[in-house]
Design a protein around this nucleic acid. Structure first.
Lengths: 354, 354
DNA sequence: ATGAAAGCGCTAACAA
DNA sequence: TTGTTAGCGCTTTCAT
């Protein structure tokens, strides 16, 4: 394994005093500032928050005192006294997978613009107990609201465990009627890609599915709908994991089958893996097999052949989710649904059947 | 562009009362619980925190009251009274790029295990003003400490703006002596990959660099060291952006040059782009040009040819960073440095020169 | 084991 | 414009 070394790299002289060495000095409080500036505590508070006007000279003295003492307001006290919290928790099973991280990024961008911070709460397993435990821990923190990423069963469990007497927004997944929700119309999108492949001349389309959030994910449902509407046979769903390597394995297995000419993959990582596995097995893409992905991963355009895929605007999804949260934060309790439709990006991995 | 629809999806009957419809009801406090349970406030606190023993019957009554009222402790009040905060801010310029998100994931995992939550603070531009503003905002929140991702100039600025009278840990970048820091030995790693290519028989190695954190990043320095030590000529550094597409452009340009037989890329996305560009330009990898990457991106093994790369343990880096934070949180002010060495993963994208 | 009292650092309501 | 007085909801002494 990797070597890891750990070593002290210096003892700054200001910490040489043994009485100081074990903890950080107690920070200056608003009272200290008031004393140094020769004003009352609320006056300091007023220059800090701008809640009320302060005469120029006092304001100046306060500012100097703050500078001199290196004063920083205590967030906990502020939150307690004002009743306003600035943290939005994002509860999710994942932070690294493309769709998740891009969505979180969108939430963060919108939250920051509104003066809020995003707190990450990862819940690993989709059991009711773990969801409840995570919710209890999270709600014990000073939070303004919670956004749940419901791309998978973990999100479903978390949302079930969450009391609805505080601002809650769900992202993606099945639409519920009691919570504001930002979603992508994956059913329609799944139908659209499948239709695209059918229109290219393929007799049917095989589907490699991502792990579903409940019974079946929207992409899979859309795929089935399109096939049935076209009177095409509906082949059994092939299940993959979130990992690209599972796509490789499936691709190798598919390479020897003459009956598969078009494959719709539940996401781009799987599609890229599938293409690799297919070519490992001697099948050419798109000449022998057409492959389309889902999401428009940053590497989809760099892949060879360029991956045709359904572009999902995850950052936009995240921003819309925060938009719904912002409404709740303002006191508007109306439950609203924000939907957007993914768009096909045509590159080179799909074409007419051989 | 994408269609976005937004619509109300229901007005739950319990909110029909107009007096309730514009805000959430005031939550139960510990005093309410005490009243219902017929005990004192501190007793409720004791069953909540476990700070002191409580008789079984009172504990039971308290638990029932909590359940009945749907009581949840107020995090801000708790933080203020106890002086203990549970949030660790991670200040970074990015959350989606592989190295960043994998590191944050490692921090989160370790933090969660220790009962802490990660707050994301994104700083977009590497100016002193923006860094100071971001620091001011972040430090106005109830935080236990701050971890700075110093992969780039933004991190450098943020660290400069950060007062050191609270727990601060830096991740990666140049080693400073006044802050605990978790790093990967990128200089050594850069030397190692370059050496690997040289040993394969290449006369020299070209380098496509990622945006550097200050003057030059460690990977580039290591590359130069190896070349100089071997007496090889040092070609000019080729600069790329974080984007894989920049690798494609560079690859196309490089495809027509006979003098480049080996290229060391600053990260895997660029390497994948480079391979795509090279093959677009008619050059074969590794027959005509050997390419190695850096990081071991999740798709590196799925790429064709499989990408030879320096594997960086980002989640481990994040965990080590939190480990240093945990020491500071316990009051140990010793400034320590934790270093680990990336390891070469040999796949198929590099070989002997033609 | 339990309660009374004090106080964490700040903002809000009220006078002046 | 400013200061005084009260809390915010919890934890922490300190008695008992």
């Amino acid at each position: 394994m990797t070597d890891i070394s750990e070593s002290p790299i210096g003892h700054p002289s200001q910490y040489a005093d043994p009485t100081m060495s074990r903890s950080f000095a107690k920070p200056a409080s608003i009272g200290d500032v008031a004393k140094v500036a020769g004003v009352s505590v609320p006056t300091v508070s007023r220059v800090l928050t701008g809640a009320a006007p302060v005469s120029p000279d006092k304001r100046q003295r306060v500012l100097e005192a703050i500078e001199e003492l290196g004063y920083r307001p205590n967030g906990a006290a502020r939150a307690l006294a004002s009743g306003k919290q600035k943290f939005i928790a994002v509860m999710t099973s994942e932070t690294s997978i493309f769709g998740y991280s891009a969505t979180i990024q969108g939430i963060e961008t919108a939250a920051r613009a509104a003066g809020y911070f995003v707190v990450i709460s990862v819940v690993e397993s989709p059991t009711a107990e773990e969801a409840e435990q995570a919710v209890r821990l999270v709600l014990g923190q000073p939070l303004a609201g919670v956004i749940v990423l419901k791309f998978d069963p973990v999100g479903v469990r978390v949302l079930e465990a969450l009391p609805l007497d505080l601002p809650v927004v769900a992202v993606s997944g099945e639409v519920a009627s009691d919570v504001s929700q930002a979603v992508l119309d994956e059913v329609q999108a799944g139908t659209d890609v499948t239709r695209y492949l059918l229109d290219l001349g393929h007799e049917t389309v095989h589907h490699v599915a991502i792990p579903p959030s409940r019974e079946e994910d929207g992409r899979t449902i859309g795929w089935r709908n399109a096939l049935e509407a076209a009177g095409a046979i509906v082949p059994p769903v092939i299940s993959a994991t979130w990992d690209a390597a599972s796509g490789v394995r499936i691709g190798r297995a598919l390479a020897i089958r003459r009956d598969v000419t078009a494959v719709f993959c539940g996401n781009d990582e799987i599609a890229m893996g599938l293409i690799a596995g297919l070519s490992d097995g001697g099948a050419r893409v798109p000449e022998d097999v057409s492959v389309v992905g889902f999401d428009d991963h940053p590497l989809a355009g760099v892949w060879r052949p360029g991956l045709t895929t359904m572009a999902q605007d995850f950052p936009g999804l995240g921003r819309r989710a925060f938009g719904l949260m912002a409404k709740l934060l303002e006191g508007d309790r109306e439950v609203t649904l924000s939907t957007s439709l993914p768009e096909l990006v045509v590159r080179a991995s799909a074409g007419p059947p051989r």
